[in-house]
Amino acid sequence: MIPRLSLTLLLLAPLLVAAQFGQFFEHMFQGGGGGGGAGAGQQQRGGRQDSNNVPSNSDWYRRNFDEATCNKYLCPGTLACVDKPTHCPCPFPNTEEKFELHPDGKAICVSKSGKVKGLTARKVELARKGLL
């Protein structure tokens, strides 16, 4: 009885995996995860990239960086104009916290650690001390 059940589960396992992760793999290898062809992240229309998609190179960023007007410090991650680098905002403030790294005078943005208040700050402090 047990070998028959094991054999049945072994035969059904690929179907269960396909049902669970099928769309993930389909998206990964066809619709948006890289690779070549017109269906892999870039829809081609007459040899041009679909205007709804951002280019896959850094031209868009460089163009916006070059066109940004700032007489102080231009933050490379957000293109915000601030007084000094440590004043740069995090690109995703809803999910990131900013920490200044003294004595460097630099700042980093770190993903928030769930709902426990202060956990991210504790992890950053442990990392500063080389304990994490």
Rank of each mutant, 00 (worst) to 15 (best):
F29T: 15
E67D: 12
Q20F: 04
N57L: 08
S56W: 03
G32E: 01
C81D: 05
A68S: 15
S56N: 14
N57Y: 08
N52I: 08
M28T: 12
Q20M: 07
Y73S: 09
G41N: 06
C70S: 06
F65A: 11
T78F: 03
F25K: 00
V82K: 07
Q43T: 12
C81S: 05
K84D: 03
C81N: 05
G36I: 06
G46D: 15
S56V: 06
A80E: 10
G32S: 12
N53Y: 08
C75I: 04
G39A: 11
G36D: 10
G39V: 01
G39M: 11
Q20K: 08
Q30F: 13
P76E: 06
Q20S: 08
D59N: 11
G39H: 09
C81E: 04
R48E: 15
F21N: 03
G33L: 03
C70G: 11
L79Y: 04
G31Y: 00
G37C: 11
D83A: 14
V82M: 07
P76V: 04
A18H: 05
A80V: 04
L79T: 03
Q49N: 08
F21K: 06
T78Y: 03
R45Q: 14
E67M: 11
A38N: 14
V82N: 07
Q44G: 04
A18R: 00
C70W: 05
K84Y: 04
G34D: 02
F65P: 01
F29G: 00
D66Y: 07
G33R: 00
G22K: 03
P55A: 10
W60Q: 14
V54M: 14
K84V: 08
Q43K: 12
S51K: 10
L74K: 14
V54K: 12
S51H: 13
G39Q: 10
Q43S: 14
Q23V: 03
N53D: 07
G31L: 01
A38Y: 05
G36T: 13
G39P: 02
S51T: 04
Q49Y: 02
Y73N: 09
R45V: 14
S58N: 15
G34S: 15
V54G: 05
N53P: 00
G41D: 02
L79S: 05
Q44V: 13
Q49R: 12
N53A: 09
A18D: 00
Q23K: 03
S51P: 15
Q42I: 10
F25R: 01
Q20C: 08
Q20E: 09
N57S: 14
D66L: 09
N57Q: 06
F21G: 00
D83I: 03
Y73G: 09
C70A: 09
Q49T: 10
S56A: 12
H27I: 00
R48Y: 09
F21D: 05
R62V: 11
P85L: 02
C81F: 03
G47P: 02
C81Q: 05
G46Q: 13
V82S: 08
N71R: 11
V54H: 05
A68L: 04
F65H: 15
C75M: 06
S51W: 10
G77R: 07
R48D: 06
N52E: 13
A40P: 01
P55D: 15
Q49I: 04
Q42D: 03
Q42V: 15
W60T: 13
D59R: 15
F65N: 12
G47N: 12
Q20V: 10
G32R: 02
T78N: 06
E26G: 04
Y73Q: 06
G33V: 00
Q44D: 14
F24W: 10
G77E: 09
K72Q: 14
Q42S: 07
Q23C: 00
R45A: 09
